[in-house]
């Protein structure tokens, strides 16, 4: 965690901590505790997907074949690239290259936004294909298979919840980039970048798991 920090890079101790190491450790432990809750939040949705698949295998496969497999795959690539830029931002923060770090953070935010744009396009394509069963006023493509609604609706809940996390992540990242571009940031709050990086990687990981669970294994 604190390995290989350059001179002048570090964190400023808050009043209720005794040492900087204690403060750093508390923050790391805190974000991991939070990520545990994020994992269980999505895992419960994946469990519902599994049960739907067990109870209605044909309907689920039929519904899954209507998902936009290639958009999902491209979006996974986008997020894996964003993980790379986030890792770069962390490394730059450690060696004190502040401008490079800020650029890597902006790139990460841009890639996250690209994911959301592609996701939005995917929803639009779903809408055009009449694959929005929760819209009461719009006819549903797979009316003959009522149980397929379950999986399709679950797909919307899961991807919207993930999208919400990504949107929150992008907002936090942009806010933090603004603060992080100021002079002296890396001597006061370097570990913010590391903590935020853990969150970003984990949201990517959720998608890395969601893509196969929703799009791939049910084909």
């Amino acid at each position: 965690m604190s390995t290989g920090l350059a001179d002048g890079v570090g964190i400023k101790r808050a009043h209720h901590f005794e040492t900087v190491a204690q403060q750093r450790y508390a923050a790391t432990l805190g974000i991991w505790a939070w990520l545990i809750t994020e994992l269980l939040l999505f895992a419960a949705l994946f469990l519902v997907a599994l049960i739907v698949r067990i109870q209605h295998p044909e309907a689920t496969q039929e519904a899954a074949r209507h998902l936009k497999f290639w958009i999902g795959a491209v979006n996974t690539v986008v997020l894996i690239v964003s993980s790379l830029t986030m890792s770069m931002a962390i490394e730059f923060s450690r060696i004190g290259w502040q401008r490079a770090m800020v650029r890597a953070m902006l790139a990460t935010a841009a890639l996250g936004s690209l994911f959301l744009v592609l996701k939005g396009y995917e929803y639009y394509a779903d809408y055009e294909e009449h694959m929005m069963p929760f819209l009461g006023s719009r006819p549903y493509e797979l009316t003959a298979s009522p149980a397929s609604r379950l999986f399709v609706n679950l797909y919307y809940v899961a991807t919207l919840l993930h999208g919400l996390h990504l949107l929150t992540g992008i907002s936090l990242l942009l806010g933090m980039t603004w603060i992080a571009s100021k002079a002296g940031f890396l001597s006061r709050h370097q570990n913010w970048i590391e903590i935020y990086g853990l969150y970003w990687h984990f949201i990517d990981l959720i998608w890395i798991m969601a893509f196969p669970i929703l799009y791939v294994v049910n084909r």
């Binding site: 993980s83 790379l84 890792s87 196969p212």
Partner: peptide, 21 residues
């Protein structure tokens, strides 16, 4: 390390996308 990780993830994703397609 980040670049190698990136390449490994892309490789694994390629396997899964191929299998899925």
């Amino acid at each position: 390390k980040p670049v190698l990780t990136f390449l490994a993830l892309m490789g694994l994703l390629a396997v899964n996308v191929t299998l899925g397609a």
